[in-house]
Design a protein around this nucleic acid. Structure first.
Lengths: 133, 133
DNA sequence: CTTGACCTTGCCATATGGGTAAGGTTCATA
DNA sequence: TATGAACCTTACCCATATGGCAAGGTCAAG
């Protein structure tokens, strides 16, 4: 299976498959004489694993670790759980930042008349700060 | 005022001030004979504006537009409001993605025994998909 | 004059992709 | 068999915003 088929089968782009390879996450089983990457069903499973992990937001470095654990029959789920929990914390952190932004944006936008005038609560806030509320 | 003082006064790093300059957001009023950037209080206000806008998550491209409006006495607050509303939508979108990730991560983590065994609901989900719940 | 703190530019890196170019390969069909 | 389409290869550039480092110039104080 060439990279095009592997891309179609995994839901990733060929470009990203090469990128993940360069990042050390997957290597094609072999190369053809012409240098074409050859993938087998085992490789496709790995690619799908990566895709799903990316959908959950795991960074590539985490995925490298998860893949190693996945392929290790003597793995400990404690380690896996830790990785996931730490990632969850990152997600929650980002979530809080975004929620704070959202609140402030909503409040500030609500204060802007939007009547075509030059007075603007949004610019006002960016000028003044006044980190209130 | 040199870039170091401007950084301290604005809360940005000197590095970022140079970056914003290269992105077209601010130019120092002048340069010294030796090429040192010279900032004045007017510039500091701009830098603070950028800092606050970044804290609200506005991308640099948006900030460029906001700065232009800010400095335009004949601006229309309608335009400003639109920029802010579109940014708010982006924030809300990202928020939803992260919330979905958070939910899935929490559920999956909860299903992982974490008892040191090899069985792991997290790896299971990354293997199976089963995009349920 | 030396030293240290500051400044300059420029490159590399992060993380995730999109795009594009220049070239080789494979296969089917004319 | 020759040609073209569709695929592959590597290797760049672009974007997001930010950090770091290196090599060198400048300035002020001692």
């Amino acid at each position: 299976m060439n990279i095009g088929q592997a891309a179609a089968a995994s839901g990733l782009s060929a470009k990203m498959i090469r990128h993940y390879e360069q990042s050390g996450l997957v290597q094609p089983t072999s190369r053809s004489t012409a240098g074409y990457r050859q993938y087998q069903s085992k490789d496709i499973e790995i690619l799908k694993f990566i895709k799903r992990a990316r959908l959950l937001g795991f960074p590539l470095a985490d995925i490298a670790g998860l893949l190693a654990l996945w392929q290790n029959p003597r793995r400990s789920n404690t380690v896996v759980k830790q990785v996931a929990q730490q990632h969850l914390q990152q997600v929650e952190l980002k979530l809080q930042e975004l929620q704070a932004m959202k609140r402030t944006l909503q409040q500030t936008i609500a204060q802007c008349a939007g009547d075509g005038g030059a007075n603007c609560a949004i610019l006002q806030r960016l000028t003044d700060d006044s980190t209130k509320a």
